[in-house]
Amino acid sequence: MTAGGSTPKLVIRVVVLALGAALLEIVAVSQISVFGVNADLTPLVVMSIGLLTGSVSGAAAGFGMGLFLDLALVQTLGLQSLIYTVIGYAAGRIRELRDPQGAIVPLAAGAVATAIATIGYSIVQFLLGVDAPVSFLLVRDILTTIVFNTVLAVPVFAVARRWLTPALPDDPARRRRRAYTTGGLSPLSRA
């Protein structure tokens, strides 16, 4: 699944994380309203899985999590899975192409993932046909949710990293960088 290949341990950990987050979201987090909106952990978790494990496992986790939400909430099947597949894949590609290490990365990726989830959901709903008038407050709520989720992106990413890191295969590029930044391969240390 990842650049270094997936292990059964990693697959199990991804599944447990995705299912746990989806359950936590629908039974608790979605019922806690702050400034009129509730946080949505699910796109953040999919983004985190993508950023940590790569595009293929990110897309697969996104598809599975979306399908679980569609089934458990009796929504239009395929709607959330389509959107979350895109989020997981995009987050994974960021890791594969740039492998960014800055603290701001989960923050920015969380904002973009939430924007894709909320705006994408609304666009697909419109494409499927909405008879009722739509309130302008929907736009305000989308923006508030994006801000709210952006704040939560860092702790969610930290929890996901803590949970998935023991099962992640060792990436040679990362190992080189880690060694360099900690002095292992530094020219100064060799001198």
Partner: peptide, 8 residues
């Protein structure tokens, strides 16, 4: 017991 997490 559960609530749809979307904004709709």
């Amino acid at each position: 017991i559960t609530r749809s997490p979307t904004l709709w």
